[in-house]
Simulated scan of single mutants.
Amino acid sequence: MKKHSLRVLAPDASLLSRRQFLGYTAGAILAMCMPGCVSSSERRLNIYNYSYYIAPDTVKNFIHETGISVVYDEFSSQDVLFAKLKLGAGYDLVVASDYMLRRLIRQQIIDTIDGFKYYSDMIDLVKKEPWSSLCRYCVPYLWGTTGIGYNRKYVKKAPTSWNDLWNEDYVGRVTMLDEKRDAIGAALIKLGYNGNSCDHKQLAAAQKELTHQKHILRQYTNDYIDGLARGEIWLAQAWSGDISRAKDANPNIDYILPKEGSFFFVDSWCIPKDAAHKREAVEFLNYVMQPEIIAKVTNFTSYPNTIATSMPYVSKELINKPLGYPSAEMMKRTFAQEDIGAEEKNWDKMWESIKFKN
């Protein structure tokens, strides 16, 4: 038996998060693993990605096609990713969201990428600034929007605003994302401010809003798909692709982009500067971003990808529903999360206070 190895580490194999889905477990991926250690002479690749943010057979097929051994680990949030990279965890390829990408570039944690073949095939969204400059350091992968998922069986009047996540009628049935940029950002937008604000008075007002909301919340979590589908959660700050999958499991699930506006995100592959297997990382990028391969990722995760030439292979059902591919009208109400520089520490302190203090 060959030694090519695939290892998946999840914070909790029972959890299904952003980049997660119903009915699929870490055990299903682990079943693809080959026993035995990877020899020092063998080509290998260490990948760090969001949980279940890839098709089930993508890595397995890459291993089979190239003979490169893969150690595949998963993280639950961008803060976890950043902490690991700062410690020098030895990853060769990671997935960073747009604001984190800028932070990693600013702190010189990631390297430029040479040899990627499919930049010319990418969608217009990532051919414009700031992405046309950022693409020196990344390969844009999947994208989507942040909004509100809800269960129509229990929420009789469809939400329209971020204010609906503060509705006292739903005490214990509301969740917010366990990502400071999404949760604090939503509170800022709710108050009429920029979702990337670094104004201390505006941030203090957002903190007050989130503190007031805590008695309504069930929890801060990125694991809400099952809860929505089962009726345990009625309203959730959510990512679009997750709600698409939840809706497949329960037709009562729906999604809105709040009228005040919200974020769109682009998650990108990056290569850390201390990566030991950069050639293998680029080889994986040139494999996974092939139009037919990346279309399978989109069909599985329900998140649109950045390769325009993949569209003939993407599920028509996904293309035709706003949860998969947002309309132009929806996109007009979205904006990107920006790198906030040194103010990140203030946001970190504020987030810790919101989550862990009464």
Results as ranks from 00 to 15, higher is better:
168 E>P: 00
86 K>R: 13
305 N>A: 11
179 E>M: 05
218 R>D: 15
155 V>E: 13
163 N>W: 06
327 S>K: 05
94 V>F: 01
18 R>K: 12
253 I>C: 01
150 Y>I: 11
275 A>F: 03
172 G>F: 09
86 K>Q: 15
339 D>C: 14
275 A>Y: 04
239 W>R: 10
286 N>K: 06
77 S>R: 01
122 M>S: 09
26 A>G: 00
248 D>C: 11
213 Q>W: 07
143 W>I: 13
250 N>K: 08
79 D>A: 14
79 D>M: 10
302 S>R: 15
26 A>N: 03
311 M>G: 01
216 I>T: 13
200 H>A: 15
121 D>T: 00
346 N>P: 00
297 V>I: 08
11 P>N: 10
81 L>Q: 06
108 Q>D: 15
320 N>K: 09
74 E>R: 07
346 N>T: 15
253 I>E: 01
18 R>F: 13
357 K>G: 11
291 P>I: 13
99 Y>K: 05
143 W>Q: 15
218 R>C: 14
55 A>V: 02
15 L>G: 04
124 D>Y: 00
34 M>N: 14
116 F>N: 10
241 G>N: 08
283 E>R: 08
175 T>A: 06
333 R>T: 11
167 N>E: 08
216 I>E: 11
50 Y>P: 06
118 Y>W: 11
17 S>G: 08
348 D>G: 02
331 M>G: 02
261 G>L: 04
184 I>S: 06
208 K>W: 04
59 V>S: 03
291 P>H: 11
51 S>A: 11
278 K>F: 05
179 E>T: 12
344 E>D: 15
318 L>C: 04
243 I>K: 04
197 S>C: 12
180 K>N: 00
295 A>C: 04
161 S>Y: 06
210 L>P: 00
122 M>R: 12
15 L>C: 08
221 T>C: 07
108 Q>A: 10
272 P>Y: 06
37 C>Q: 07
41 S>G: 00
183 A>P: 05
249 A>M: 07
334 T>L: 06
70 V>A: 04
260 E>L: 12
312 P>I: 11
6 L>I: 14
126 V>L: 08
4 H>P: 13
76 S>M: 07
188 L>I: 00
96 A>I: 13
52 Y>G: 13
328 A>K: 14
66 T>E: 11
99 Y>G: 04
258 P>E: 03
241 G>D: 03
294 I>M: 05
149 G>Q: 07
101 L>E: 10
17 S>P: 01
334 T>D: 06
328 A>C: 04
176 M>Q: 04
106 R>I: 04
71 V>P: 00
254 D>N: 07
303 Y>G: 09
150 Y>P: 10
16 L>E: 12
301 T>L: 09
285 L>A: 08
39 S>K: 07
228 L>P: 01
188 L>K: 00
191 L>I: 03
313 Y>E: 05
87 L>S: 11
116 F>Y: 15
320 N>V: 01
268 S>F: 05
122 M>I: 11
137 Y>P: 03
141 Y>C: 09
218 R>T: 15
155 V>T: 13
65 E>P: 01
311 M>Y: 06
252 N>V: 10
138 C>I: 09
106 R>T: 08
173 R>N: 08
315 S>H: 02
327 S>P: 01
242 D>L: 09
352 E>P: 02
317 E>G: 00
135 C>N: 12
275 A>W: 02
288 V>R: 09
234 W>E: 04
